[in-house]
C-alpha cells in the first residue's frame, strides 16, 4: 500500500534506497507460490498453439495423414488401372488432373502415392531415431573407450552420404519393396540423431538432479531411462521431425534413380521421374506429384522449426 502523504510530510528526508513500495519486489512477492511452474513441455505446448507456423504445418500434416489414411475419399479411380485408350488426356471431369502416358489417372496416382511416402518417411524416421538414439545415448552416457569406439563408427557412417550408401545396398538387394527401402534408408540415416543424442546426454548426465537421483540409490539404467533421456530428448525430436521430410525426399530420389520401389508401385518419386519424358507436352504430370511431395516435406520441416523455437528458452525470451 502506498502511503500517499509520506513525501509532503517529511520534505527533507532523502531516499537513499528506493522505498519498498516502489521496487519491483512486490511483483515477485505477488507471484502465486502455491502453483507449480509449467514444465518445459507444457511451456512448449503453450508457445506452440500461439505460433502460426505450427498451426499451418499441423493442419497440413493432418491433411496429408488424412489423404494417406483415406485415399478413397479423394478419388474413385484405381491408381494401378492403366487404360491406354485414354492415355495422355488433359484434365476432364472424369480425370480432374488428366492421365499419364500409360493411361493412369494422375489424381489417383497423386492421392494414393501419399500413403507410400508417408509410410516410408514415418517408419524410416522411427527406425533411424531408435537406432541413432540408442547408439548416441550409449556413447554419451557410458563415455570412456566405448564412447570413443562408437563415435568413430558413427563417423564412418556419417562420412558416407546417405543416398550413396542406400544406392549401394539397394542395388545388391535387387527388387525393392517399402520395407526394404525403409531398412536401406535407416542404415545410413541414423547418424545425425546419434550425434545430437550423444551431445544432449553428455550435457544432461552431469546435472545436479541426476547426481541427486544417484545419491538416492537409483541404478545407472534407471537414471538413463528415467532422468537423462527424458531431459535430453527435445533436440532429438526436432531432428527426427525434419528427418522425416528428408527421408521422403530420399525415397523419391531412389525411385528417380531406378533403384527404389519398382515401377509397379504407386510412388511420387517414380511418377515424377516418369513424368520427365512427357514434360514438353504435359508439364502438369510433373507438377501434381511434385507439389504433393513438396507440401508434405514442407509441413514436416516447418513443424520441426516450430517445435525447435518452442523448446528453445533462448528464442522464447524475445
Amino acid at each position: 500500500m502506498r502511503s500517499d502523504n509520506r513525501a509532503p510530510q517529511r520534505p527533507k528526508a532523502q531516499h537513499w534506497v528506493a522505498p519498498l513500495d516502489e521496487t519491483p519486489l512486490q511483483e515477485v512477492d505477488a507471484a502465486d507460490t502455491s502453483s507449480t511452474p509449467r514444465s518445459l513441455w507444457a511451456e512448449a505446448v503453450h508457445n506452440l498453439v500461439r505460433n502460426p507456423v505450427f498451426i499451418i504445418s499441423a493442419l497440413l500434416i493432418l491433411l496429408v495423414l488424412f489423404v494417406a489414411a483415406f485415399p478413397g475419399v479423394f478419388t474413385s479411380q484405381d491408381p494401378t488401372y492403366g487404360n491406354l485408350s485414354s492415355a495422355n488426356k488433359p484434365a476432364s471431369a472424369e480425370h480432374p488432373f488428366g492421365t499419364t502416358r500409360q493411361g493412369y489417372d494422375t489424381l489417383a496416382r497423386t492421392v494414393w502415392g501419399t500413403r507410400t511416402s508417408v509410410i516410408i518417411g514415418f517408419f524410416t524416421m522411427i527406425c533411424s531415431t531408435i537406432l541413432g538414439g540408442a547408439i548416441g545415448a550409449l556413447a554419451g552416457y557410458v563415455g570412456g573407450w566405448i564412447d570413443e569406439i562408437v563415435s568413430r563408427i558413427t563417423d564412418i557412417f556419417f562420412a558416407v552420404p546417405m543416398i550413396l550408401g542406400a544406392i549401394v545396398i539397394a542395388t545388391r538387394l535387387g527388387e525393392m519393396n517399402m520395407w526394404t527401402v525403409i531398412m536401406v534408408l535407416s542404415i545410413f540415416g541414423w547418424t545425425n540423431v546419434a550425434r545430437i543424442m550423444r551431445g544432449a546426454v553428455i550435457s544432461t548426465k552431469s546435472q545436479d538432479f541426476v547426481t541427486a537421483s544417484t545419491a538416492l540409490g537409483a541404478g545407472s539404467l534407471t537414471n538413463l531411462l528415467k532422468h537423462v533421456i527424458p531431459n535430453a530428448i527435445a533436440p532429438v525430436i526436432v531432428t527426427a521431425t525434419v528427418n522425416l521430410g528428408v527421408f521422403i525426399v530420399a525415397e523419391a530420389t531412389l525411385s528417380f534413380l531406378g533403384v527404389g520401389l519398382p515401377t509397379s508401385a504407386v510412388s511420387w518419386g517414380g511418377d515424377i521421374s516418369r513424368a520427365r519424358d512427357a514434360l514438353r507436352n504435359q508439364p502438369m504430370m510433373l507438377f501434381y506429384p511434385s507439389v504433393a511431395l513438396a507440401i508434405t516435406v514442407l509441413s514436416f520441416i516447418m513443424l520441426g522449426d516450430a517445435v525447435r523455437d518452442a523448446l528453445d528458452p533462448k528464442a522464447r525470451k524475445r
Binding site: 521430410g245 525426399v249 523419391a252 530420389t253 528417380f256 518419386g269 515424377i272 521421374s273 520427365r276 514434360l279 514438353r280 508439364p283 510433373l286 511434385s290 511431395l293 513438396a294 507440401i295 516435406v297 514442407l298 520441416i301 516447418m302
Partner: peptide, 21 residues
C-alpha cells in the same frame, strides 16, 4: 523452405526444361 521441400531432381528437370528446351 520451398527449395528444401522440392527434390533436387525436380528442380533439375524444370531448370533443364525451361532454360534448355
Amino acid at each position: 523452405l520451398l527449395v528444401i521441400a522440392v527434390p533436387t531432381f525436380v528442380l533439375g528437370f524444370v531448370a533443364q526444361f525451361i532454360l534448355g528446351v
